[in-house]
Amino acid sequence: MASTIWSGTTTFTAPSGSETTVPVKMPHRAILRGYALVQLTGADNKFEADLYSSNQETAPNSALPAEAFHLLSLADFADVVADQDVVAIAENSNVNVAYINRDGSPSNPQRFLYLRIKPNGSGSKNFVLTVTVETPMLR
């Protein structure tokens, strides 16, 4: 089956010490192939970051917890390295995680994943998230 590679970038600011949810515009269903989460400013105090297929705390009309929508923890796949141009990088170009946004419907698909990030330390920090996905070509 033929497919198309899609890549997109989201820039955002997150305050340290609290969780921030960032909507990431992307195809509503695909296979996540890679990502790079780059911290541009602030001290390198590490961060926790997870991708979700829904922004719901529970699934509509069910008792599913938010963890049912959890795709991956970026730290599970990432090597965090220092670079002279950035503060920290968490990246992996060998991811193979299929997803579908769970907020929409087949007739009204929502084209987002959600990054929940909690930077450690103090002050606000600027980040850039780049994702690469493979989408199937429909006939």
Rank of each mutant, 00 (worst) to 15 (best):
A90H: 07
K118L: 00
P65K: 01
V22K: 04
A78S: 15
A43D: 14
T11W: 03
P119F: 04
P106R: 06
I100L: 04
E67I: 02
N94R: 11
T130K: 10
N94P: 02
G34H: 08
R102V: 04
L115P: 04
N92K: 04
V81P: 01
V128H: 08
P119S: 13
T132A: 13
K118H: 00
V95C: 02
T9L: 10
T9F: 06
A14Q: 05
H70S: 10
A88M: 12
L64T: 03
A36Q: 14
F69A: 05
G34S: 10
F12T: 05
R111G: 03
R33C: 13
V86M: 10
S93G: 12
S3D: 12
E57N: 10
G104F: 02
A78P: 08
T130M: 11
A98S: 09
V131D: 02
L37A: 02
G123C: 12
S107F: 09
A88F: 02
A98T: 03
V38E: 15
R29S: 12
L40C: 14
K25W: 09
R102A: 11
A30L: 11
V22Y: 11
V87L: 10
V128I: 15
A78T: 08
V81N: 09
Q56D: 10
T20F: 00
L40F: 13
T13G: 11
T21W: 07
R116N: 09
T21F: 06
F77C: 02
V133W: 03
A43K: 03
S3I: 05
G42S: 11
S7H: 10
L71W: 05
T21Y: 07
N96S: 04
N126T: 12
N126R: 12
S107W: 10
P106C: 05
L129S: 00
A66M: 01
R33H: 06
L115R: 00
R139W: 13
S53N: 12
S18Y: 07
Y99Q: 02
S105W: 03
H70I: 01
A30I: 12
G123T: 11
A90G: 14
V81E: 07
A2D: 12
N45C: 13
Y52H: 10
T9E: 14
L74I: 01
D83V: 07
L40D: 15
G34Q: 08
